[in-house]
Structures are given as C-alpha cells and as structure tokens.
Design a protein around this nucleic acid. Structure first.
Lengths: 200, 200, 200, 200
DNA sequence: GATGAATGAGTCTTCATTCAT
DNA sequence: GATGAATGAAGACTCATTCAT
C-alpha cells in the first residue's frame, strides 16, 4: 500500500495555507481575539480537530501568519528596491520605504490586526515581534544611508521610531478611499522626512 | 433620623473611585478585554454585585475612566500652560505638549490600555473617542499657532497626525527607566518638531 | 418622649398600602417573576430595606395582595347581588357572576398576573389558592341555586369548573377594546349557561 | 476513511432527543423559567457546552419541543379520527377531540408547562403559538361540522374558546388518578357540548 | 489524517435579601 | 423605623481544546 508520502505532504501544505488564508481574513475582519478557532475551521470548511492537527493552538496560527508576513515584506522590500534608482537622498528613500509599507499593509490586512492585537493580548507581542523587526530592518538601512555618523544603537532606535510612526499612521492610509490615499501617505512621508532631516 | 445622608454619598464616591482605580490598574496590566468584572471586584475587595451597583456594565467602567482621563488631561494641560512662558515658537510649544502628555500618560496607565483596546473592541471606540479628541484639542491650538495659514480642516488633520505619533511613541517613553525617559521624550519631540517645521 | 404610637401605625399602614399598590402595578405590567423587589421599592420611592420591614420576603407581598383581592372580590360580589333582583334563573345568575368577575378582573390586573404566575412558580399556587377559592364561593351558590339536587361535592366541582372556564376566557375579555368587551363576555356566558343547562 | 458519517448523525439525533426529553421533564416539573440550562445539561448527563452545540439558546429548546408537540398532536388527531366512525354529531365529535387532547396532554407534560410559561415570559408566546394553533385546527373542523352556518371568523373564535376551555380544565384531568380521569374528562366534554349546542 | 461532538471552566450580569449607619 | 450599599450564589452562554470514531 503506497502511502503517497509526498502527495500527503502536498495536501497538508495546502491545508495549512488554507487555514492561514482563512484566519487572515477573519483576523482582518474582526480581530485576533474575536476570531474563534472554530470560526476559522468553519470558514475553511474543515473540522476543528483538523485545524489542531496543523497548529497546536490559536497562537501558533498567528505565528505562522506572521512568518508569512515577514516573508511577504521582504519580497515587497526587494521589489521596491530593485525598481528604484540608487540615489541616497532622504526623500527618495522615504518614498521607497513608505511605498513598500503601504503596499504591504494594504495587501496584508491581517498583519495590522495582529499588531493591533499585540497591543492588547500579551501573548501576541512575542509573536508579532519578528514582523516589527522586519519592518525595522529596511528602515535601519535607510537611516544608515541618510545619517552615516549614527552609532548602531542610535540607528536602531531611529528606525524603531520611524516604524512606530508608520504603524500609527498606516490604518488611516489604507482605510482612506483610493483618491485620498496618496495624500494620507504624503503626510506620513512628511513626518518621516521631517524627523530624519532634523539635526540631532 | 440617622440617615447619614452625606456620609453615604461620600462612601459611595469613594467606592466608585476605588473601583475605577482598581479597574485602571488591571486594564493597564492585562488590557480591557482580559480584565474580567469579577477580577475588578476581587481586586477591589468588593463583591461582583457591588460593582454593578455603581456601573451598569463593564463598558460603563471604561466610560467613567475615560471621563476621568479627559478631566485629568485638561488639568495637566492647564497646569503646563500656566507654568510656561507665552512664546509661540514651535519647539517651545511642542515641549509643553509633550511634557504634558508624558506626565498624563505616566500617571494614567489605563488610558493607553483603553485606547489600544479600542483598536480591537468595537464597543470601546465610542468610549475612548472623547479622550482622543481631548488630546487633539491642545495639539490643534499649537498647530494653529505655528502655522496660522492652515485651513481648519488641515489644522485638525495635522493635529490628529501629531496625536497619533504621540500615542505611538508614548509606551516606550513611559516604560523607559527614569534615566532614559527624557531621551525618549526628546525623540518624540524631534519627530513633532520636524513634522511641524516641514513646509507644506 | 412621646412615641406617637398610633401615628406610627398609621404611617406603617399607609406604607404597606403604598407597597401593595406599587407591586400590583408592576405585577400587572410585567408579571410576578419579572418584578424585582428592588423595582417595587424604587417605584414606591422607598428603600429596599424599608420594604423588608413590612414584608419578610417577596412572596409575602403576593400574599397580602391576594388578601386584598379576596376582600375586593367579596365587595364586588356583594354589590352585584344587592343590585340585582332575586330571580334564580340560570342566565340571570350567570349574568351576575360574569359581570362581577369581569368588573373585578378589569379593576385588579394584578390578580390575573398572580394567578398566571401560579401556573409557573410553585410557590405562588399556595398563595393564590384563597383567591381561587373566593371566586368559587359565589359560583357554588349559583350552582346550588340552579341545580339543587347536586351533592356538596358535585356542587363544589361544578363551581370549580366554572371558575376555571372564567379564568381561561377572562384575559381576552379584559384585553378586548371596550366596544367588543360585551361580545367577549357574552361568549363566556354562553359557555357557562350551556354547561349548567346540560342535564347530567 | 473512518468518518462514520451516518453513525455520527444518529448519535447527534439521539442527543437532541435526550436533551428534549430531559428538558420536557424539567419544564413539566418546575416550569420553563425555573429550569436552568445547566440543570437540563446535568440531568441529561452532558456538559452545558454540549447542550449549546445543538441549541443556540434556551428558547430554541422550547421551540424544538413545541415542534415535537405539534407533530405529536397531528399524530394523535390522525389516529383518533382514523379509529372513529364518521358520524358528525356534536357529542361524538367532542368525544374524539377531548380524547385526543387528553391523550396528547398526558403524554406531553411539557406542553402545558410551555403554554403556561407563555403567560409569563413574552419570549415564549411566539414559540408556543404554533401549538395553540394546531390545537385549534381540529377544533375548527368540528365547529364547522356542527354549525355549518358560522362565518369563518366566528368559527375561528368558537374554536379558540373551546381550546381555551380545554386548556383550562386539562391539568385537573391529567393530574387526576386514573380511576377519576374519565369523570374529569366527561366534565370537560359537558362544557364543550353545552357550549356548542347553545343556539346563538 | 480527518471528523465534529464533547468538554467545563470561565464570562458578564442579576436579584432576593441583609446590615451597618 | 429608614436607608441604600453590599452581598454572593446563580443564570445563560462561550470557546480553546480534546478524543472517540
């Protein structure tokens, strides 16, 4: 009796993706806390027991989702960088950063839900930390490029401030009607450019 | 006639304050959602029923707390303004604003918990709206002072951005060890000054 | 120090009446079960503690109210009988009975509420038994007048049947708009006359 | 593929029946309001959560029970009619009706509890309406057979009166010791026959 | 692996009754 | 007697997780 090993795995992977997609949609819609594991299972048209075959608990779903977001973010960063000229002027760099993050956030509504949830469920903060870190990574490069004299610590901190600002203003940006989205994003850029241009 | 009228009321008021203090502490510690009404009662050393003699439901506690925060915020604003010289330079004004808000947030750990909770519990958004509005009020004055040519709409929006930024960076500030708090606050000021100084 | 004994008592009696009036209104409006003792106290503008000074518990209020209803019913019976000619024909007697009971029920909405509650709260059945008995009393006389050959047991049983029928159809009668009330009452009379006219 | 599909369903159906049987017993014993969902679960030897897997709330149990009663009533009606000769004389028809309803009520102690509960819990009235309607249906046929000249409205009203009378006298009938039950039923029949025989 | 019924501790809230003032 | 805050045992319902099939 052939056990169809690889086929099995393929199906398992598909199921994992299905669960994550479904969870993402629900997290985005009603938030992490308000999303029940049974609701995820039901929306994915699988049984609760099956869900727990792939994820040991609810938090693990958030974890896996976060991993996916981190990968997606790297992707977006990569594409944006590849597409943009190499100039190292503050405004241009900020443009890239914000564009990338807006694109990412618009495409990943669950990411914001998770990060908002972390503000409220202590469990989640560990989970979303890697995502925040990933957001900071690129920002650190930019900070380094625009202020080469900073120590590593200062650079890290400055990047962290930038990302916090980005996260704070992002909801308004992605929630804005398309016509106004650019304006909202411009406001965010203004904050960042102002910040990074201010001499220490 | 031993009705002890005023004494009764005094005790009632004390109990309300006790409940609010306790709730505030728990909200700050584990968040609004994770705080159970029974836990509040237990922590306040009263019975669950007693709690409901003063507040019709859990949300009402958040409401009362918010009212207290709004009052406290007005107080802080008032004191800061009274104590500071009248100059209308951006950095000085920002100093006042940030100082006031840091003082307020440090003294009101529940305020952030409630605002974060609003990101997650639809019920809370109506409740905390007045607090956000109160924070914006003063910021709007400052924005008006530093950029007199803005329309009312622009002023409002700019103030809103400022407050979002403040809220985003505040946790790190109040969580910082006292020695580093000033540094962290300075970073926030830098963001705001940069933003408000950037020509449109 | 004169203790004003009788005055005290008068006030006490007034308070009891006040409580009963208030309870009656609430029972009629939302039913016995749904009426809380605190609601009675509040509606009577007294304190819960005061209420319990006059009634040891909620059931005792229903008991006192029932006693009042029994007295009221005797009154109504008495007045109706006094006002009607002495003929002993079935229809005329039934007319009297029904008229009396409709008058009583319309004037005592709490009585029906209590009897309905007895169908549901075992505690209440003992309480309302005297009222049911009082209703039966007069019916027994009528049954005796129309069928003199019945044994005491048969008479009692027949009267009980009549009263059950009356109670069953009464809500529809008193709830009917005034214009249709007579029609509804006629239907009840028809049932009773038919029943009492049927030879055994 | 060991999904045991049909077996699952069978067990589910059994459990639903178990819950309904248990609820029926408790409703009959202490009434709808006084029956707690936890008590139903405990009496059925299942967990509270399990109960809620089959019924979204307490009222839904009453609904399902009512549906069962309506079905049972149709059954009883059907059997009684099939077994009885076709004569259309009032007494014979009433015999059938009463026999059917006594049988039904004796077998369905919860039905009366639910109908009595409706007198007191607004939620229940919608729920039990179909049962009352089902009881009236057959009565309407009988009324139509015995008094063909009635308008539809009059027929409906007369049937309604009959059913109210039946409901009022039924508790005494089913509570009577077997030896006396027939007598008690006879009394009910006498009321109905008398009513329907009285010329308008 | 898949299923989905089962679990039970825990959530918010209520209310008859008590008791210090 | 009067007050009204205080009580605490329930009540209806939820949900992350488990387990027999």
């Amino acid at each position: 009796m052939a056990d169809g090993g690889p086929r099995r795995q393929v199906r398992g992977i598909r199921r994992i993706e299905l669960i994550l997609d479904t969870a993402e949609a629900l997290f985005a819609e009603v938030g992490y806390d308000a999303t029940t594991t049974n609701a995820i299972a039901a929306a994915a048209a699988i049984s609760p027991g099956s869900l727990y075959q792939f994820f040991p608990n609810k938090l693990a779903i958030a974890e896996a989702l976060t991993a996916r977001y981190v990968a997606g973010l790297d992707d977006v960063y990569g594409r944006i960088l590849a597409a943009s000229p190499g100039g190292a002027q503050v405004p241009a760099l900020i443009d890239q950063l914000v564009e990338a993050l807006v694109t990412f956030n618009a495409a990943s509504p669950g990411a914001r839900a998770l990060m908002a949830g972390a503000e409220v469920s202590p469990d989640l903060v560990t989970v979303v930390a890697p995502l925040h870190a990933a957001m900071c990574d690129r920002a650190e490069d930019i900070v380094g490029a625009t202020a080469p004299t900073l120590t590593a610590g200062q650079r890290k901190r400055t990047a962290d401030v930038c990302i916090h600002v980005v996260r704070a203003l992002m909801p308004a940006i992605v929630a804005a009607p398309p016509a106004e989205r650019a304006d909202a994003a411009t406001e965010l850029k203004r904050v960042l450019v102002g910040y990074l241009s201010t001499p220490r």
